[in-house]
Amino acid sequence: MSTESNSQKNVPLLQVKNLHTSFYTDAGEVKAVNGISYNLDAGKVLGIVGESGSGKSVSAYSLMQILTDTGRVTEGEVLFKGENILKYNSKQMQSFRGSRISMIFQDPMTCLNPVFSVGSQLREAIRIHTDRNREETQARALEMLQLVGVNEPEKRLKQYPHELSGGMRQRVMIAMALACEPDILIADEPTTALDVTIQAQILELMQSLQKKLGMAIIMITHDLGVIADMCDEIIVMYAGKVCERGTADEIFYNPRHEYTKGLIRSIPRITEQHEKLVPIAGSPVDLLNLPKGCAFASRCDHAMKICLTQQPEEVQVNDSHIAACWNNVRQMMEEENRGGASK
């Protein structure tokens, strides 16, 4: 989201403002998302990266309003073309889901209903949001399967999900999501459950479909490497908060948050043979008891006293790059001082 696009278009396609989501469990309130904000313009790809439990999927469920019974959006706004969709009633939301924003999920093995054929599930998605007749629906279903590169589409339509491979099912999921030409596709870890070769195929397919259909994509993943060359902007999340945002290049080559640095260090690289992989020590923070300062501090190698007591504020590194880390602040102060001294 560069400033140019903001100035060209007054209202971005999707604006998420200060979104908070909690789950009310027996053990207490689990704060899964703690105020995240982002904008998404039409036709752009936004990557949301974070480890399990960082709130990336929950933030997506919140804007689709498909949280489980115990989950609730406690604060914030989601503006789609300037309209707050969190204010929609259930009927409005039904016609909104699947037609304006679609979603595909992590595990294609469990995401298709086992007792209905692929064709009937695909046709259902088309029928809900359009008023095509039987033949047109069938034709559209076939067309969609061809579009996502399923071989023998006529035969597949009659098959049941368990008769397809994982990659094939994910293609069916994508076909289902795109059947009504949504403006935004949310992909929640679309490749995590797939083989590496299939992962590449699915990503390639999504990229080409994005170019062909011109929709915006929100790509949720825990694997930075997977989405690096797809995304216009990347958000790194930790404990339900944004730690860093920027373009793919900025995140990769100039990470400012210690967590992002750790994430990048933990990506295996074939080219640098002798470098040891550095994992991030410790385990994710307990969302039931969020600590006072920076949530990442206890796992951070460069944690400072201030990190334990005060939450880091978002600081702009440059126009498109923002980080919320005290180490970044220190680094920038040092640069400032050095710059001042040299002058």
């Binding site: 403002k17 105020g35 904000s37 904008n39 978002e314 920038m332 102060m333 400032e336």
Partner: peptide
């Protein structure tokens, strides 16, 4: 982090903070 909106975000520079 209160409500963040990139279009209206205050351009905070580190030296402006009381630290």
């Amino acid at each position: 982090m209160s409500s963040y909106d990139p279009s209206q975000a205050p351009k905070k520079r580190p030296f402006s903070l009381q630290i």
